[in-house]
């Protein structure tokens, strides 16, 4: 009985030491990760982008969501297939303020289309997700049916190649599950995905100083 008790108390002490050790580890880890953000910002990283108080960033990084930097995107088309969801959370967005409202839209028509009608064989979009509407001569308006869009970037490719790039791909938070590791981000050849603070949840075109070509 004597031996047992000695063994028990020895183990208790060992456990206490272990507990204090683990606690110390966790505390220093937490301290490192939060302390680094205290007093001035962390080395300004992608997570800081759009943060309202970048200078006086005094507590911790805000929750983040995934976005695609339209400036980096090369319209490779893989967003349509690389998302973990059946319908990709990346879809086509349209900044109407950048749109040329072309009669001959290269985001809407097949490159070789001879007749500018909405006939299916002239349409670029494999799911017919773009609506074309006459505004006034010679202008037409284009809108995306988001439920139909699969994010294949075919129209984005045509628009950015020939036009202004008013069509572009972006992560739609209505669909995005905000995976801890975005499976599109991992495979994106252009490394165009980044985490942005939830307060600035969309990187949309036409908000900065960019110019078309």
């Amino acid at each position: 009985m004597d031996v047992n008790e000695k063994q028990t108390s020895r183990r208790e002490v060992l456990r206490l030491v272990g507990r204090v050790g683990v606690l110390g580890c966790l505390a220093s880890l937490a301290g490192m990760l939060t302390g680094r953000l205290r007093g001035g910002c962390i080395e300004a990283g992608p997570a800081c982008k759009g943060c309202p108080d970048q200078d006086g960033c005094d507590l911790v990084t805000p929750p983040t969501v995934w976005q695609l930097d339209p400036a980096k995107c090369t319209n490779c088309g893989q967003c349509a297939t690389d998302c973990v969801l059946a319908q990709s959370a990346v879809r086509c967005f349209h900044t109407h303020a950048l749109c040329g409202h072309c009669k001959l839209c290269f985001g809407y028509f097949e490159p070789g289309a001879r007749v500018l009608s909405s006939a299916a064989e002239n349409q670029l979009c494999p799911t017919g997700a773009i609506q074309r509407r006459f505004v006034e001569d010679p202008y037409y308006a284009y809108t995306i049916e988001k439920d139909l869009c699969i994010g294949c970037s075919k129209c984005v490719h045509g628009c950015s190649m020939f036009g202004n790039g008013s069509l572009y791909l972006q992560v739609d938070h209505e669909l995005c599950k905000n995976c801890n590791e975005c499976s599109i981000a991992r495979r994106c050849p252009a490394n165009a995905f980044e985490r942005v603070p939830v307060s600035e949840a969309y990187l949309l075109k036409g908000q900065g100083e960019e110019e078309g070509n």
């Binding site: 490779c76 088309g77 690389d82 490159p111 070789g112 494999p126 294949c152 490719h157 190649m161």
Partner: peptide, 14 residues
């Protein structure tokens, strides 16, 4: 290639 052909913007003929 992992991108289906129908998603490709095709100007190869030109």
């Amino acid at each position: 290639p992992r991108v289906p052909r129908t998603y490709r913007y095709d100007v190869d003929e030109y």
